[in-house]
Each structure stands twice: as structure tokens, then as C-alpha cells.
């Protein structure tokens, strides 16, 4: 196969990162250093694809793009080594995510817009292209939010198609479309995204018992590995045979947390593509990747030696 992975980001974004010291609302700031104002393609699947591209993992990116912002994302992505684009263009404009990083206070402020409305004709065309593209890969990651107009059962249908063809499937998301996929066509590896809400399958996830209950339920529904972010520096890892808590032993600043979830997913996929299906070891590699990514303000997977170092920077407890 020419490609290792298909990354679906149905609702990509142009991520604009502004670094502003002592940021407060209501004030006027001028950015004089160009490196303090950057823009790059974003959205969970795209982030994973970009992180893995540096490690020689060849991926195809699919989803919906539109308008001027869509063209900027498309141009930037299709010039990156090991990244292939296959987006469906819509008439509406792609969304922007604005992050204001305040290194002095170590605080991150995020402003996200909704994304374009997807018309039925474009969705049908997307499905045709998706089905053809699945034949080119062994691994399929679907992650992030769905744009308006896309049906709630979209992820479920997309996973159903990939699973029937024997593909390894991965999902990082949250919301009704995530629940629908878990219930009906649960992917192999699941990472609920708790950043915006902590509801999964109708339950609010707060105590450690809630995490264990919902993780085991997702495993019962067919997942081989469930990874759940727990109190910022921890992650609960649930497989068919075990439940573990990984806790970072390194101090982590919230201003550097952007993209750590995607680095975790990228680490798991990287491990599985290179070494095969040892889910617990894959989770350990994911954790090391997530810790390495916190050494950088922006989205970064970390260098090879950092990943090796970070394998010793978290403790593992059996629950």
C-alpha cells in the first residue's frame, strides 16, 4: 500500500495561534514578532496526520473544506511530505480556531467557530470518495466534531464500512455522533474528548468510578483500548484484561496542553503501525508522545529521543 493511514477530519479548521504576554480581555495588543502569530491547518485528524508525517507515516486527509480559508489549508497541507489531501470542497467557508497563549500566566484562551453547512449532494460525493479511499489504507482514524448538515450517524456508518473491510479503526471525539458510533459500530481504539463536555453515552463522567464504568462499557461494546484523559496529567487506560492509571511525573503547564490529546492518539497509531497490536504498549507509547508534546507550545509530537526519554516520565498504577 502507498499509504498507511486515512485521517478523517470532517470539520477542519485554520488554527491561528497568537502568543500574548499578560493577556486580558478589553485591552489592545500589537504583535511585533511574526513567530508570535502563526496559522496552520488544524482539526484532530489533520493534527495526527501532521505529527505522524515527520515519522514517515504516510497518510491521506479527508473531510470538508470551503472558501478562502479552505484553500489556505489545502495549499499548506498538500505541500507537506508524507501528507496527501482528498477533501471535498463546499460553498461555505471553513472555520477558524483562535488560540491565545499567554506564556507569562501560563494560560490558554480558545475561540472556535462552527464550520460550514454541508449540503446533501456534497455529503453523498464525500461518501463515494471515502469508500474508494478506504481501499487504499489499513488504518482509519475518524476524529473531531461534525459540521452542520452531516447526519448524527455519520461516524457510525463510516466505521461500519471500514470495519467490514477489515480496517483498524480509531476514534477521538465526543457528542451524539460519538455515542452513536460507540453504540452501533464501535471502533477498535476510542479516546473520548472531554475538553468541551464530560458526558459519554448519557452519563456524566466525574469520579474515577464513572471513568471505569464507562470505559468498561465501551470495551464491552467492542473497543480493544479506551483511553480517557483524567484530571489533566493523568490518563485512564482500559483494555479487555486490565485497568490502569498513567500519571505524568513531570510538571505540565496548561499553556502547553494544546494538541496533547492528538499526540496521544498519534503515538498509539504510530506504535500499532510499526509494531502491531499490543494495545497496552501502544497506550504507553501514546502517553510518552503526549508528555513529549507538552515540551512545545504549539502542536508537536516531539523528537525520537524525547519520546524514548518520556517513556520513563509517567507512573503506571493498576486500578
Amino acid at each position: 500500500m502507498d499509504y498507511d493511514l486515512l485521517c478523517l477530519t470532517l470539520n477542519p479548521s485554520l488554527d491561528r495561534e497568537l502568543i500574548v504576554d499578560d493577556f486580558e480581555t478589553g485591552n489592545f495588543y500589537r504583535i511585533n514578532n511574526p513567530s508570535n502569530s502563526t496559522m496552520e491547518p488544524g482539526g484532530k485528524g489533520i493534527n495526527v496526520s501532521l505529527m505522524l508525517a515527520d515519522y514517515g507515516v504516510n497518510s491521506i486527509n479527508m473531510g470538508f473544506l470551503g472558501g478562502f480559508i479552505g484553500s489556505v489549508i489545502h495549499d499548506k497541507l498538500s505541500n507537506i511530505k508524507n501528507v496527501t489531501t482528498n477533501f471535498v470542497f463546499t460553498t461555505d467557508e471553513t472555520r477558524e480556531n483562535i488560540e491565545i497563549v499567554d506564556p507569562s500566566k501560563k494560560v490558554l484562551t480558545e475561540i472556535n467557530s462552527l464550520g460550514p453547512f454541508i449540503r446533501e449532494e456534497d455529503y453523498k460525493h464525500f461518501i463515494k470518495r471515502y469508500k474508494s479511499t478506504v481501499s487504499l489504507v489499513d488504518h482509519v482514524l475518524i476524529s473531531g466534531s461534525i459540521p452542520p448538515g452531516v447526519p448524527i450517524n455519520a461516524y457510525s456508518e463510516l466505521f461500519s464500512y471500514a470495519k467490514k473491510r477489515g480496517k483498524s479503526t480509531y476514534m477521538e471525539a465526543n457528542g451524539p455522533h460519538f455515542d452513536e458510533a460507540i453504540m452501533n459500530n464501535c471502533p477498535m481504539i476510542v479516546r473520548p474528548d472531554f475538553r468541551k463536555n464530560n458526558m459519554v453515552l448519557g452519563s456524566r463522567i466525574e469520579s474515577i468510578d464513572d471513568y471505569i464504568y464507562i470505559g468498561k462499557k465501551i470495551v464491552d461494546l467492542g473497543a480493544r483500548l479506551v483511553v480517557m484523559s483524567y484530571h489533566v496529567v493523568g490518563d485512564i487506560i482500559i483494555t479487555k484484561d486490565s485497568i490502569h492509571l498513567f500519571t505524568s511525573t513531570e510538571e505540565v503547564f496548561s499553556s502547553n496542553l494544546y494538541g496533547t490529546g492528538d499526540a496521544f492518539t498519534a503515538g498509539i497509531i504510530h506504535y500499532i503501525i510499526k509494531n502491531g497490536y499490543d494495545y497496552f504498549e501502544a497506550a504507553k507509547f501514546g502517553m510518552a508522545s503526549a508528555i513529549a508534546s507538552t515540551h512545545y507550545i504549539g502542536k508537536n509530537f516531539g523528537k525520537d529521543f524525547e519520546l524514548k526519554e518520556c517513556m520513563n516520565k509517567f507512573k503506571i498504577e493498576k486500578l
Partner: peptide, 9 residues
């Protein structure tokens, strides 16, 4: 080349 698979059936 542009690594892009935009095409039509």
C-alpha cells in the same frame, strides 16, 4: 506534484 486525490467518478 501536488499530493492531492481530488477526482470524480
Amino acid at each position: 506534484m501536488q499530493r492531492d486525490l481530488t477526482s470524480i467518478l
